[in-house]
C-alpha cells in the first residue's frame, strides 16, 4: 500500500493511503479530541470536535479529521485560536444537552467552554451515534436506531428486536458519553417491551430468559 507523507503540527508523519488524518495523528502520538470516534467502528463525523486546519497547495481549510483522508504534503494544524474557538462553541452547545457528562465536561474545562451559554435542553443525548453504530456494525442487531432529524432527532429502541437482543447484551451502555442510553433503555423496557411480551413475540423475559 502506498505511503503518504504529511505534516501534523510541524511533525513529519507517514500514513498508509486511505487512512484518516485522525489515525495518522494517533500513530504519531498527537492527540486530537474526539467524542463520536471509536476504533472499532466506521468513521462517522458526527460530533465535529476533531476539527483541524488542513493546508494543501497554499489554501487552508477546516476539515473533520476523523473522516478526512490523508493527502501527500498536507499540512495539518490540530490547535490554533480558530480551532479552539470552534471546539469551544461545539462544547458550549453540547453542555446545554449533557452538562454532567464526564467526557464533555472534561473537554469543556480544557477549552474553557461555558455551562450556561445556551439554555439547557435536557435531552442528554449528544447524537454521537456510538450506540446505534455499535449495535449495527459490531453486533449486527440494529436494536437501536435514530429517528427524526434536526432538533427532533433521537435514539429509539426497536421493541421487536430489543426485547430479544438487549437483555443479555447491553454492550453499548459503557460507550455512551452521557448515560442517556441507559435511561432510554430503561424507559423502552418499561413502556414498549412489555406490550411486545403480551403480544407473544418475546422470548427474553420471564421463564425463558437466560
Amino acid at each position: 500500500m502506498k505511503e503518504i507523507r504529511l505534516r501534523i503540527d510541524g511533525k513529519e508523519v507517514a500514513a498508509p493511503e486511505g487512512a484518516t488524518v485522525l489515525e495518522a495523528a494517533k500513530t504519531a502520538g498527537i492527540r486530537i479530541p474526539t467524542l463520536c470516534h471509536h476504533d472499532g467502528l466506521e468513521p462517522f463525523g458526527a460530533c465535529r470536535i476533531c476539527i483541524v486546519e488542513a493546508e494543501a497547495r497554499g489554501s487552508s481549510r477546516l476539515v473533520v479529521s476523523c473522516v478526512y483522508p490523508v493527502e501527500e504534503n498536507l499540512a495539518v494544524r490540530t490547535r490554533s485560536p480558530r480551532i479552539d474557538r470552534i471546539r469551544k462553541t461545539i462544547l458550549d452547545l453540547l453542555l446545554a444537552h449533557a452538562p454532567d457528562s464526564p467526557q464533555v465536561s472534561g473537554l469543556a474545562a480544557e477549552y474553557g467552554a461555558l455551562r450556561d451559554r445556551f439554555e439547557k435542553e435536557g435531552s442528554f443525548c449528544i447524537h454521537c451515534g456510538l450506540c446505534v453504530r455499535y449495535c449495527a456494525e459490531v453486533k449486527k442487531k440494529h436494536a437501536v436506531g435514530f429517528i427524526g432529524r434536526g432538533i427532533r432527532k433521537e435514539i429509539c429502541f426497536i421493541p421487536e428486536v430489543a426485547s430479544r437482543e438487549c437483555k443479555g447484551c447491553k454492550e453499548c451502555f459503557p460507550l455512551c458519553p452521557t448515560s442517556y442510553l441507559q435511561a432510554a433503555y430503561a424507559l423502552a423496557e418499561s413502556l414498549a417491551l412489555p406490550c411486545v411480551i403480551n403480544r407473544g413475540h418475546c422470548c427474553s423475559h420471564g421463564a425463558q430468559s437466560p
Partner: peptide, 21 residues
C-alpha cells in the same frame, strides 16, 4: 415496516430512520 424489512433485508431501525426523516 416489518414486511419491507424482511423482503429488502433492511433492518427496521434503518427503515424507521428514513421514514421519520
Amino acid at each position: 415496516i416489518s414486511r419491507i424489512g424482511e423482503r429488502l433485508e433492511v433492518p427496521a431501525a434503518r427503515i424507521r430512520h428514513v421514514a421519520t426523516f
